[in-house]
Design a protein around this nucleic acid. Structure first.
Lengths: 234, 234
DNA sequence: GCTGTATGATAATCATAATTCGAATTCTAT
DNA sequence: ATAGAATTCGAATTATGATTATCATACAGC
């Protein structure tokens, strides 16, 4: 977390011209990240937030145009960290020389790690998904993850039936993210975000899903619904 | 949906003494179920809701003590239908004479069907999870599903290592519900709620997860985190 | 140390949507 | 048909919390 990702000027965030206000801004963002781990965005009033940091609403609005802009900043930070994390993983070359099992483990580790690190903001964004740009920004982060990781997976699944395999890999990631989203939102058990077996299980699950496809046995009724197919064509 | 599940007196719901008000009540509940498929609970104002039905706020408050009680009623209805659905499935005897694959398919079909039928209310409840009793009521529904279905699964996984298998079965269901929750909330793709391959894929996934366990190869680092273990002991 | 700008504090203001309440209407039972 | 209860109406009230406005204080450059 030694990031200056806090910096950069975001829409609705007034760039600070003195270090004083920059500290205020960072403190507000950090406090929000923390407070959102235990409460809803709606339950986090500006007064509460500023009180936590030891300033008042005036300073808040000196930095952020609105609560909305504030939360948006929190999201952007979480997304940037996610991107940086993924880029670092790939740059490390760790993915290159691995078999399917290890690749799955590394990707699962990555995803779970991000959710652990951004549990509060992620949950808040999930709750507001489909509102303006809430979760969709994270969705995009996930989309990139899938698009970029899929070739790595395919390379380990032998030749042929590219389309089918691609969809199955997509579903495997959908499963992985689904589990993580549900944990963050509802912690349904048996596996929690901090359980030691979460990542191995996620990895095993992804591997198992794609192996079934690679081995030829595809599920019945494959493909999209007629409705969805029609929509995609249009 | 020819249910009189609408009836029964719920906390915060004033029992109607004339059919007139009962119709109003049912219309309000049905309209809510429908409207929540496309909008957030917060975006559903009492005025909107009553306008949809052709009554006014007065009648709403004649039936429901509050918006909260109203939404609670919607949840209870969804839960009762889920229970009834599951009881019917078991009573039909369909589960009894099946192999593992078919059992998984039936359970996946059941779960996906419920989410399809209650997409709106489910999504709204998910968004408010951890608030008073929002999602937790559904969580309980899922818990019962898991507890009751687990023996059926175990019976098809050979003898021995009961505890490990039970946890794995739990994780398989966690995966299934996680995917469904995420679809309802974010529709991340590739599989949507109405896609023909969703249920087969869910079934295959559940089967694959538990088969790996049955075949002996268990994921590393199994079990809960030290923190969770400590908490469980206390 | 001064002066202009940036930041912070505090007390209004505003917006929104839930909720209330008394009057008007419709029903049920006699 | 009519009294009394149930229901409905809808304008007025409230509650909440975001936002704004104004004034006070702190900083940076000279």
């Amino acid at each position: 977390m030694t990031d200056d990702l806090f910096s950069l000027d975001l829409p609705g965030v007034t760039p600070s011209r003195q270090s004083r206000s920059r500290e205020t801004m960072e403190a507000l963002l950090k406090a929000g990240e923390q407070l959102l781990r235990t409460r809803h965005l709606e339950d986090l009033s500006i007064v509460d937030l500023t009180a936590e940091v030891g300033v008042t609403v005036g300073s808040f609005y000196g930095r952020f145009e609105s609560k909305d802009a504030y939360f948006n900043a929190l999201q952007v930070i979480a997304i940037r960290r996610g991107q940086a994390r993924y880029v670092a993983l790939r740059a490390s070359g760790a993915l290159a020389q691995t078999d399917l099992a290890e690749l799955c483990r590394l990707l699962a580790e990555h995803a779970a790690g991000w959710f652990r690190e951004h549990e509060g903001v992620a949950r808040a964004a999930l709750r507001h998904s489909s509102r303006p740009e809430r979760w969709s920004a994270f969705k995009e982060l996930g989309r990139v993850f899938v698009v970029v990781s899929t070739p790595d997976m395919l390379a380990r699944l032998g030749p042929g039936r590219r389309a089918a395999k691609t969809r199955t890999v997509g579903f495997a990631f959908q499963a992985m993210f689904g589990i993580l989203v549900n944990i963050v939102l509802n912690d349904p058990g048996p596996c929690g975000l901090d359980d030691a077996d979460l990542v191995p299980r996620l990895a095993a699950l992804v591997e198992a899903i794609v192996r079934v496809e690679a081995d030829g046995a595809a599920p019945d009724g494959r493909g999209r619904s007629p409705r969805a197919r029609r929509a995609a064509k249009a």
